[in-house]
Amino acid sequence: MNIQDYLVPHHVDECLAMLNAWGGRGRLVAGGTDLVASLEYGKAQAEALIDISAMEDLMGFEIQDHELVVRAGSTHRQVSAAPRIRQLWPALSKACGSVGSPQIRNVATLAGNVVNAQPAADAAVALVALGARAEILSSGGRRLEAVENLYGGLGQSRIDSSREILVALRVPVPDAGEVNVYGRVSPRNSLCLPIVNAALSLKTAGGTVLSGRIAMGPVSDRPFRPERAEAALQGVALKDRAALSEVGRIAGEEANPRDSCLRGCSDYRRQLLTVLIRTLLEDAAAQTAEEA
């Protein structure tokens, strides 16, 4: 990598000014764990790194009105370890705890996980299922976009981190009867990208699913939402194991995982998704039963 300068802005205006000054040749760096490897192997180019981790206004997370606001500086560890998040958004907490290793989770940020746009990214899969939105700032102004709309192809984010800042991720607070779950399948227990992963967010009442969102990875160029399986969720009784299996089957059918010499053939990965989705629905059923 041929980095000519390393800049540390202290607030977002200064950061935007730096991005503008470098005219697309500067890149934001948060934790840096993905970016450094990409720069090292020539997969990414930049002439200046603009480090956002010292910006007070991008630090921490909080619950505001009806949203959890995870600012860009928040690390996977901070999010996965927060008791309040574990309680209300167990899917997000668990997904964040599955990324990389403890050392990586200590520096890697959720915002970075989203901007890096990998379809297997655990936190991003959870955020999509939870209906999270991203707050993006550029010299043109501030905009809100659903996380699932930020993907522009494999590994391609529609956020241009040489010109824009993802300042926060906003996750709606679950209503009563709403539950969320996350799970993954990987050959070993740690330090491993998933063969498949999935997150679910369900609105339920009286043991019946009113509606639900499912996100799965890595089965597409982005966290994938199986529309038919989501439709099939409506009205399903959480005690009805056969019905849960059927949703899993449909989700598996809708997904189109590639044959991979490392992750397994498509049919097998579809089977894993079928089982994973059903298992997660069972977990969700157990959660609602606990709350009731």
């Binding site: 390393y6 540390v8 760096v29 840096g32 764990t33 450094v36 490897a37 790194l49 480090d51 981790s53 560890r77 290793s101 403890p102 050392q103 990586i104 200590n106 520096v107």
Partner: peptide, 21 residues
Amino acid sequence: GACTVLLDGQPVLACLLPAMK
């Protein structure tokens, strides 16, 4: 993980960390 050091007491990977951080 062989390059692990503690940054403000927390383990991080020195091979992925820009020194300026």
